[in-house]
Design a protein around this nucleic acid. Structure first.
Length: 137
DNA sequence: GCCAACGTTGGC
DNA sequence: GCCAACGTTGGC
């Protein structure tokens, strides 16, 4: 079981879009490191959904429902997309500003590689976020 | 709107 | 293979 964080611009595809769709292929990633993380996802892995832009906050938890396959939005076979399903919204979104202030979260990839759209999260970080979000799985 | 950080492209 | 120029992301 691994933990991840996926960023999305809510104007393009938000947590609520995911809830509405019931499941989605996480398409459009065009960065090799992010792609490698998508390929490493296994069904059952848990994914923090982060809204970039105005909100800049973790807003929900999704689950990987199918391993990555060819991204159907391109013919380029380098790019892949896993399938995600919404699991639970956070009772309280956790903003980036709060993550920056939280001692246990100083090593999050989010703070070091601000432009990486798919990144691994440790189990401890994952549950620390849930704690700040006052949310239990 | 600005800018830092980073990835990509292309000339050499 | 290096690096300058340029484009993009994303926080502020």
């Amino acid at each position: 079981m691994n933990y991840w964080l996926c960023k999305s611009d809510p104007e393009e595809y938000s947590w609520l879009d995911l809830v509405r769709d019931r499941k989605t292929l996480w398409t459009g990633v065009r960065n090799y490191l992010a792609r490698n993380h998508l390929q490493a996802m296994s069904p059952g892995d848990l994914v923090l959904i982060y809204h970039s832009g105005n909100q800049s906050a973790v807003v929900g938890v999704a689950r990987v429902s199918a391993a990555a396959r060819q991204d159907p939005t391109t013919d380029d076979t380098r790019w892949v997309a896993p399938e995600l399903v919404p699991l639970i919204p956070l009772n309280r979104p956790v903003p980036l500003s709060e993550i920056k202030k939280t001692k246990n979260l100083q090593k999050m990839v989010l703070l070091r590689l601000s432009r990486l759209s798919v990144q691994p999260v440790t189990k401890a970080e994952f549950y620390q976020i849930l704690k700040l979000a006052q949310t239990k799985l």
